[in-house]
Computed example of a mutant assay.
Amino acid sequence: MIQLNRLEAIALAVLALLAGITLGVPVGLWYGASHATAVGAAKLAELRRETAEASAAAVSAAAGKLALETARGDRLSAALSGAESHIDAISRQLINRVDHVTTVYREAPGAALKPIPQCVFTRGWLRDYNAAIGAAVPSAVEATGTLAQAPGAGIAAVGEDELAPAEIDAKSILTHQVEYGARNQKLEEQLNRLIDFNEGKDAQ
């Protein structure tokens, strides 16, 4: 066996230490980098999984809410359709009664029926009637034709005699009021359903 003196033994120990440092550092760095990469990849995969699950949950919740809102809208629409049908039915009944209530009258119970006297309406009256409901007053040429927005023709235009008689009677006025009233009731029903939908209310 070779005997080493003290100086040689110290030298060998130093060499061994240097060799260990030289080889250990790269090995340690490689291990640390590999471990960090593995941990990072695992955390990234977990984050992707959580994000996918959250997205799927959000999509499912949104789809469920959309389905509920669509069903509520359908119920409100059905209620509106029912209300409009009821308005139409009442209007038909009233239209059918126009001749009955504008043609003859009786002065007392059991008295004989008499023709209703003709009521004269001026062109100025008809013009103001149209203005009250927002209907445009036509020109002098248009005033000689039929006006869809109001009962009858003969509307006084600017510069005409507003006290001249208009070509309307009680029948045409009542007919127009029934139709106009039905239109307004439908608009009110539509507005009410729209407000209900925006406020989150359901059909009654």
Results as ranks from 00 to 15, higher is better:
I10R: 15
A13C: 05
A16P: 02
A19L: 04
A19D: 04
I21L: 14
G24Q: 04
P26Y: 11
V27C: 02
V27S: 06
H35L: 11
A36S: 06
G40K: 14
A41F: 11
A45M: 03
E46G: 01
L47Y: 07
T51D: 09
A54H: 15
A56L: 13
V59F: 15
V59K: 15
A61D: 07
A62D: 14
A63L: 12
T70L: 08
G73A: 07
L76D: 01
S77M: 00
S77W: 00
A79C: 01
S81D: 15
A83E: 12
I87G: 02
D88N: 14
R92E: 09
I95V: 12
R97P: 12
H100A: 10
V101G: 08
E107Q: 13
E107I: 15
A111H: 00
A111I: 00
A112W: 02
A112M: 01
L113Q: 05
P117R: 00
V120C: 00
V120H: 00
V120S: 00
L126G: 02
R127F: 02
A131D: 09
A132E: 08
A135K: 06
A135V: 06
P138S: 14
A140T: 13
A150W: 08
P151Y: 04
G152Q: 09
A153Y: 10
D161A: 04
D161L: 01
A164W: 00
P165R: 01
P165Q: 07
A166Y: 03
D169K: 04
D169I: 01
K171V: 08
K171Q: 15
L174Y: 12
Y180A: 09
G181K: 14
G181Q: 13
N184Y: 10
K186T: 10
K186S: 10
E188C: 05
L191W: 15
F197Q: 03
